[in-house]
Design a binder for these strands. Sequence first.
DNA 1: CCGAAATCTGACGGTGTGTCAGATCGGCGC
DNA 2: GCGCCGATCTGACACACCGTCAGATTTCGG
Lengths: 241, 241
Amino acid sequence: MSVITCLAGPPVTIAIVAKSDGASRTPHDVAALRAVDGRVPGRRGLATRQRLVECTIGLLGSSSYRDLKVTDITRAAGTSPATFYQYFVDLETVLLAVAEQTVEEGQRLVELISQRAWSGPAGVDSAEALVDGFLDFYRTHRPTLRVVDLLSTEGDKRFRHLRTLILNGMTKALAAEITTVQGDAAEVEPMAMAGALIGMLPQMAGHQMGFEAWDISFAEVREAMIRLIYWGVTGPKVPKR
Amino acid sequence: MSVITCLAGPPVTIAIVAKSDGASRTPHDVAALRAVDGRVPGRRGLATRQRLVECTIGLLGSSSYRDLKVTDITRAAGTSPATFYQYFVDLETVLLAVAEQTVEEGQRLVELISQRAWSGPAGVDSAEALVDGFLDFYRTHRPTLRVVDLLSTEGDKRFRHLRTLILNGMTKALAAEITTVQGDAAEVEPMAMAGALIGMLPQMAGHQMGFEAWDISFAEVREAMIRLIYWGVTGPKVPKR
DNA sequence: CCGAAATCTGACGGTGTGTCAGATCGGCGC
DNA sequence: GCGCCGATCTGACACACCGTCAGATTTCGG
């Protein structure tokens, strides 16, 4: 396999370390970062930990999930397997850390939903912007989202939770817009419709290549997604049965 | 881990063996079943091969994809690792065989689309039947579809092809209905819309549990899916921009 | 510069992988 | 019933990864 190194590159700035204001860390921070033996790592330790996370992300992009070995990560990070186990109990745990980094970034997409017009022609534009914005987000986080998706469907509650968090902002924002547009006339619970629409996005993005097998240009699929979102938000009448 | 055995159970009937009419097998059959050393297995060999496939399916349902070991499969099948490698070059190959078995079953769902009314109130009923039919299909093939999905998004062409085949019948059938309903008025390529809608189904089915985190009852999501399909097929007007 | 705490690593027993050569099985002609 | 031969299975092996120590190395306050 190709050699990936995380040794080079700019010094990593670690968010948590910035909390040098003397305030105690929240219980969650401590729990998440605590080394295996129970100690809370210092500056050097956190840098190493972060390097391992970064290398994991890099490797997930270039090798398959199944073939990702702890050894590969430590090789890439220029450290030893024993060091890895100082910070993560196993491979799944580092994946959890990887996913956590993505949660934060996912929140940015909320801007693509709130503070936008969702009815009339402008609504179609908003839907388009959302689709394109998400496709862009997906491109940069594909490996992570892929793995989170698999482990979610496999039933792991921690990954399910993280997947929810990643999409949470978008879903809530879209649900709010649905409520605004449809008001009391909504025939489907807005959160359910929003969840369906937002969940559709990673799906489509992930199988982009798959559509080519049907000789469908992805541009057409994109168009379909835009309409589905617009319909979902505006809620055209559906005949009574 | 729990012990799963495939030794018990009724003698497996093997489809290919039924071709004892003297007609030569198609090149594809031979290629798919050929043992690693190039020979074409006989009755006993095929039975062993099939047992390995069945055990793999069983294990995929009870353990995670990453933790599935060749050893587990052979233990479950009551044979030795060396035997496994006689029929499959590696674990990925047996997964391919597993997926192939699902392709055929996927075709049954075509009935849920063709020979149904898709406009007016009856269209909503058809959408409902499609959603429920697919959810049922997903339940029985969850482990397989999960893995096929992951390996597809990871870029493996063989799995991408199989995923396409599994959904192919449904997609084409739905595209045909869209064409029937909308005729020349269709503003989106029917195959693209059908692909988007059908692709949405495994997505929703897979993250059924995930919705609970939002306190959304899955019944509501189901309702949303039904509407999205109805809209996709009937194509409500979208404002010009 | 020193000592203690933090961090890293070499080395090991256990397990899974993939490949042999040789043992076993099953059917067929006699 | 017997012996043969190809089909099938397996024990055993070399190699890689996993997860865990005890001990070496680095960092940092004083």
